[in-house]
């Protein structure tokens, strides 16, 4: 964006003005895609048994959302409104395929573990929701911020869920055996048991419920 042309029309908005900061910060807590809008639950359940794959999933979603929002926003004036959903779908599906191919080439172990879920990003309601609600009617830079914010809101929740599920379910964090090391401090007779419930999807529901509870108590959000 060149500042010269913008100055002629009206003073250009700061690169991170208050409104733009809100685009990123809103989805983190107040308008979180998972806890408030209750979107993207399926992948939040499926990938969160361990931190590492969750991290890869979060990064992939951030990439796909930012790029999809940018592309759709750039094309927003040319997209025929009658076929806009299928156009969005085509763009998202292409981006997801790209992510999958790149993972297969450079992180084969992750690809084996995640390829099913990466494919499911296409159907992640958050992505399509933001394209339809924001990118179709806003400028590219704002759309990037919006996509980034929503993806970040999604990411921190699934990472939080994964943290507790891996810690209680497998006794480790990022594969580092926390429980074993704690037990080691207290001698041989002491050991911490892992909870099998946390490894199954039920565990994700419980953690997610607790996060939503804590969050809504703090923000005072009520569903109408």
């Amino acid at each position: 964006m060149s500042t010269e042309t913008a100055e002629v029309k009206k003073p250009s908005e700061a690169l991170l003005s208050k409104r733009r900061k809100k685009l990123i910060s809103d989805p983190l807590v107040d308008d979180n895609p998972i806890t408030i809008q209750v979107l993207g639950i399926c992948s939040a359940l499926a990938v969160t048994t361990q931190m590492q794959p969750t991290m890869v999933m979060a990064l992939s979603v951030i990439f796909v959302m930012v790029m999809a929002n940018l592309t759709i926003s750039l094309m927003r004036n040319t997209i025929p409104s009658r076929v806009r959903i299928i156009v969005q779908l085509a763009i998202v599906a292409s981006l997801v395929t790209l992510v999958n191919e790149v993972l297969k080439a450079f992180a084969f172990d992750m690809y084996k573990e995640l390829s099913v879920f990466i494919g499911l990003i296409i159907t992640n309601c958050i992505v399509m929701g933001r394209l339809e609600a924001f990118a179709l009617g806003n400028k590219p830079y704002d759309s990037i911020l919006d996509g980034f914010g929503s993806a970040l809101g999604y990411s921190w929740i699934i990472l939080a869920v994964a943290f507790f599920r891996e810690l209680w379910g497998s006794g480790s964090v990022f594969g580092y055996p926390v429980f074993d090391n704690i037990s080691g401090l207290f001698g041989d007779d002491f050991s911490l048991a892992t909870n099998g419930l946390m490894v199954s999807p039920v565990g994700a529901f419980i953690i997610l419920g607790l996060i939503i509870w804590v969050q809504r108590t703090k923000t005072g959000y009520v569903e109408h």
Partner: peptide, 9 residues
């Protein structure tokens, strides 16, 4: 990416 993927496999 095909050749790289094949190697990874």
């Amino acid at each position: 990416l095909g050749p790289i993927q094949k190697k990874a496999e």
